[in-house]
Amino acid sequence: MIFFQQLLNGLQLGSIYALVALGYTMVYGIILLLNFAHGDIIMVGAYVSWAVMTRLQLGPVTAVFASILLCTLLGVIIEKVAYAPLRSAPRLSLLITAIGVSYFLENGAQLIFGADGKNMTAIFSIPNLTIGSLTLSSTALVTLAVTILAMMGLLVLVHKTKMGKAMRAVSEDMGAAQLMGISVNATISFTFAIGSLLAGIGSVLYSNIYQMATPTMGSMLGLKAFVAAVLGGIGSIPGAMIGGFAVGFIEIFVSAIKIGQQSLSVWRDAVVFAILIIVLVVKPTGIMGHKVREKV
C-alpha cells in the first residue's frame, strides 16, 4: 500500500518535471540553446499568480491567464534582448548569457518581492481522490493530464503544422532554411513563445501544488528538469516526458528507501545529479535521442 502511495507521489513530482523538461527540450531541439533561464521564468509566473490572487484579489482564472501571458511575453523579450544579438556568436556565449539572465531574474525578484517566500492559496481546488488508504491529490491528476496534453499538442505542432515544418527546417540548417524563404527570426521567436508558454502553464500547476513563490525556486526546478531532458534525450519531446517521470520516481524512491533507521532522503539530489553524469558519460543521447551525424 505504501508502495502505491509512493508511486502516486512520484507521478505528481514527475509530471511537474516533465512539463518543465518539455520547454527545455523544445528550445534546445530547435536552436540548440540550453535556456537556463527557463526555471526562472516559472518563478516569475508563480509571483504573477501570487500578485494577481493575493495582492489584486482578481481570482484564479485571471491569475492563470496573467501568468501564462506574462511568461510567454517574458520569454519572447528575453530572446529578443539577450539571445538574438548573439545568433552568430559561439554557442558558449549563448549558454553564459542564459545563466546571466537566470541570475538577473532571481536577484530582480528578490529585490522586488524580498527574500521571504510568498504563500498563496491553491488556484483551483478539487477534493482529493481517496481509494482505500491511498490519497491522490487531485491537483496531481490535473498536472498529469495537462502534461500529457501539452506533449501531444507539441508533437502535433512540430510534426503536422506548417510552423512545425519551419521549426524543423531551422533546426536542421538555419542558412538553408532562410534561403528557402523561412523567416528564421520569426520561427525562433515562436519557439521561445511556445517554450515560455509551457513555463507559464508549469508555474500555474507548480503554484497550485506547492502554494509558494520564492526567488530561487526556479533554479533547482530548472536543473532537475534539465537532468530529465538529458535523461530522456535532449531535443526529443516524448523523451522529455519519459525523463521527467523517471526523475520524479527516482527522487521519491530514494527518499523512501531506508537503511536501518536512517532514510536516504537527503541523498535524493545527489542521486539525480549522479544520473546526469552517468547518462552524459555512457549514452549522451539519452533514452529517446538519436545520434545526428556531423556533416562535413
Binding site: 505504501i2 507521489n9 533547482m220
Partner: peptide
C-alpha cells in the same frame, strides 16, 4: 518511529511524509 531528513530548498516532502 521515524526520523526523516530533507535538504535546504526542498519543496516536496511527500515521500518522507508517506513513510
Amino acid at each position: 518511529l521515524a526520523q526523516e531528513g530533507y535538504a535546504d530548498g526542498d519543496v516536496d516532502f511527500n515521500a518522507q511524509l508517506t513513510s
